[in-house]
Amino acid sequence: MAPEPATPSPVLVLPQAIVGQVDIIRATRELEALGDMLSQQKRGGTAVQLPPISERLAAVIEANKVDIQNQTERQRLYDFLGELKTKAPRLHMSFASEPAGLFTEKIITWLRTEIHPLLLLDIGLQPTIAAGCVIRTSSKIIDCSIRQRLVNSTPDLLKRLRGDIHA
């Protein structure tokens, strides 16, 4: 069979369904398994039947308009995901409780709009925060929790407290 023609590589986008590196790794594995299955079906000469895929991978495919049955495009997507895994900018945010999907979606939307379109967000849990979040980059920790606000406001709070006591 003649090799399929190389199509020009459009700019790949990262959908909101892919949040962090874990999603990248899962999507990569799923894509690999899908590729293997499709290759086997093609070699076997059977009609190609697309197996059910996760929403995550489906979102990537849809966002980038990838023809999943095209091996070249699958490979390009696979390489893209591989590069993302190693080179994409990463941010870690810790919250007091598990965020809902909509919340995560809005956060990731803002980050990819304002910071970097391919930014990966790792979400962690830190119940001691009580409220707010803690942002960790590769070299910084930005504490936006209520605890840090209280620490920053301690001198003012003490001043007011002493004022109230003496009053």
Binding site: F95, A96, S97, P99, A100, L102, F103, K106, I107, W110, L111, E114, I115, A130, A131, G132, C133, I135, I142, C144
Partner: peptide, 18 residues
């Protein structure tokens, strides 16, 4: 405390440290 209620403040913090 619901995280959804804090979204505005968290976005504000992200803006402040952008």
């Amino acid at each position: 405390i619901d995280l959804n209620d804090q979204l505005e403040y968290i976005i504000g913090d992200l803006e402040a440290n952008k």
